[in-house]
Simulated scan of single mutants.
Amino acid sequence: MAIAEVTVIPVGTGSTSLSAYVAQMQRVLNSQQGITFQLTPMSTIIEGDIKDVMQAILALHECPFDEGAGRVSTSVKIDDRRDHPTSAQYKIESVRQKLADS
């Protein structure tokens, strides 16, 4: 399973507020198949098969253009671990366990 952290920034929108774009991108993610996702204050975490994750990232990148943005900057980090099943929650729990052990 792949875990991706995605930040999409519409540029030249005439406003410093981006929450309407973020809300629309979350709606777009709701329509994507084969993924789970969670909104964070600075990005969105997407989990799933790498092909489904990449399709979701493309949909996110296109979303601000569909909403009238003339330019979009998208940053992506992908953790694609194939030696055993993983998830964002698993990664957090692993760190918590190590903190509890020390």
Rank of each mutant, 00 (worst) to 15 (best):
V8D: 00
V8K: 00
V8Q: 00
P10L: 02
P10A: 03
V11Q: 08
V11C: 09
V11E: 08
V11S: 07
G12H: 07
G12Q: 07
T13Y: 05
G14V: 12
S15P: 14
T16A: 14
T16G: 15
S17Y: 10
L18T: 08
S19I: 04
A20V: 08
A20Q: 12
Y21S: 07
Y21I: 06
V22P: 06
V22G: 02
A23N: 03
A23Y: 00
A23T: 00
Q24H: 06
Q24L: 04
Q24R: 01
M25I: 07
M25R: 00
M25N: 06
M25G: 06
M25Y: 03
Q26A: 11
Q26V: 10
Q26W: 04
Q26M: 12
R27G: 11
N30R: 12
S31R: 06
Q32D: 12
G34K: 13
G34C: 06
I35K: 15
I35N: 15
T36A: 11
T36L: 08
T36N: 10
F37H: 15
Q38M: 11
L39N: 14
L39T: 13
L39C: 08
T40G: 13
P41T: 08
M42E: 02
M42L: 13
M42W: 05
M42Y: 09
M42Q: 06
T44K: 00
T44M: 01
I45F: 02
I45Q: 04
I45C: 04
E47T: 09
G48K: 14
G48P: 14
G48N: 13
D49Y: 05
I50R: 10
I50M: 11
K51P: 00
K51N: 14
D52F: 13
V53S: 02
M54V: 13
M54H: 08
A56M: 01
A56L: 00
A56D: 01
A56V: 00
I57P: 01
A59P: 09
H61F: 03
H61M: 02
E62W: 01
E62D: 06
C63W: 00
C63R: 00
C63Q: 07
P64M: 03
F65S: 07
F65Q: 06
D66V: 12
D66E: 12
E67L: 15
G68L: 13
G68A: 12
